[in-house]
């Protein structure tokens, strides 16, 4: 009896140990980024990455935030990033929810519409964005919105509205059909049904989609790469790229740039990670049970 208990304890300890090793490996880059950004230039020039700093310094952040010479500071790109990503993500998910609602109710009357629509939005969500680069640029140029915020927003919508619709389609089925029918018999038209009946019920799914899409929009590198190439339009990921390690860039500056870029998404992930994971799970068909 006693020895079996001891074996159980050992097994449990082993399990925790193995998991802990993986956890440490997974957190290592984050750790490096966080401590690295606070190192002084001298420390960055002479110490290995994983050793903790002896003195904390914000000189790297100062350098990255305001820029130097031809290096654009991250101050304005950060503001642009915040200003643009929020409305774009919000609009995407709201409009996407409406699209998902349409597919849901149309499934009865004309299933081929829903099937076709579903295939297209799946395609749009998973297709590599690079496949559309040539015609997209051509379209945006001919619309005259190349190198503008509108062009940026348009490109974001092309990729993220379908993804939002797809995710909301995965969350909508918790809506029992009879509630929709009851509302119809009560005289409500689609707009009223959507806002009064559907939306309150799928709110958790909406939040999951919103958080997921927001983080995807935030980290999008390719869309600004091809549309907002003028320095006055630099979005955060593009501006941060300047701080890739090289001759003039020490790693404390690279890591500070990394922290500036990842701060907001990581904070959101820490507090609202549950929603992000549910949004992610929706891409795989729900993954219920988590």
């Amino acid at each position: 009896m006693n020895s079996r208990y001891v074996i159980k304890i050992i097994k449990y300890a082993l399990l925790q140990l193995v998991v802990a090793i993986f956890i440490i490996i997974w957190l290592a880059p984050l750790y490096a980024m966080l401590i690295g950004g606070f190192k002084t230039n001298i420390a960055a020039a002479s110490t290995p990455i994983f050793t903790p700093p002896s003195h904390l310094s914000t000189e790297a952040y100062y350098f990255d935030w305001f820029g130097f010479g031809t290096l654009i500071g991250l101050e304005y790109p950060m503001m642009r990033q915040l200003l643009i990503t929020v409305p774009v993500a919000l609009a995407s998910v709201i409009l996407g929810s409406m699209g998902a609602y349409y597919f849901y109710v149309e499934m009865e009357r004309r299933p081929w519409v829903s099937n076709l629509g579903f295939s297209i939005i799946s395609l749009a969500a998973f297709l590599p964005a690079q496949t559309l680069i040539v015609p997209l640029i051509k379209l945006i140029s001919s619309l005259g919105i190349y190198q503008t915020y509108w062009g940026l927003a348009f490109a974001y919508f092309v990729f993220y509205l379908p993804m939002s619709t797809l995710l909301m389609s995965m969350f909508l089925p918790v809506m029992p059909k009879y509630l929709l029918e009851s509302a119809r018999l009560d005289g409500a038209r689609d707009w009223a049904i959507f806002w009064h009946v559907v939306f309150p019920i799928v709110l958790p799914g909406f939040l999951s989609t919103l958080i997921f899409v927001y983080l995807m929009v935030w980290q999008d590198f390719f869309v600004p790469l091809i549309i907002a190439t003028k320095p006055s339009l630099y979005m955060l990921p593009i501006a941060a790229r300047q701080y890739v390690g090289g001759y003039a860039i020490l790693y404390n500056r690279s890591f500070a740039a990394g922290v500036i870029t990842s701060a907001i998404p990581l904070i959101i992930f820490t507090f609202l990670g549950r929603y992000f994971i549910r949004g992610l799970a929706a891409l795989g068909g729900g993954a219920k049970g988590l």
Partner: peptide, 11 residues
């Protein structure tokens, strides 16, 4: 129509 499970709006 009164549905079998009453279909009351939960929110």
């Amino acid at each position: 129509m009164v549905f079998q499970n009453w279909a009351l709006y939960p929110n």
